[in-house]
Amino acid sequence: MSLTVSEVKDCAHLARLGIEEQDISSYAKDLSGMLDLLTQMNDLDTDGVEPMAHPMDQVQRLRVDVVTEQVDREKFQAIAPQVEAGLYLVPKVIE
């Protein structure tokens, strides 16, 4: 199997991942190699096998509904690239 340059671009866009134009073909080659590896899975008959999402067969634990977090905004926003009036700033969002 191989991945085309345009498929790589589509995935890069979905993942909002900037990739230099000259690197795309190298990603396409690497990913195609990975896909070849993945197709080996087709050798195994998995009909009727339940997909396994977690290694441990457990159910979700539930948290009691109480407020436990006091937010220190200054601390959290000290590491933010751009804030003003307590808000995180981003380039204008157009709806």
Binding site: L14, A15, Y27, T46, M52
Partner: peptide, 29 residues
């Protein structure tokens, strides 16, 4: 980036069952 792209591809419409679900079944085996 390589792994993000691979994961994005494996989860994208049309490939989810062939890759992700298949891999989870293999995981169980």
């Amino acid at each position: 980036k390589r792994r993000i792209l691979m994961g994005t591809y494996a989860l994208s419409a049309g490939y989810y069952d062939a890759y992700y679900i298949k891999a989870q079944k293999v995981r169980r085996l």
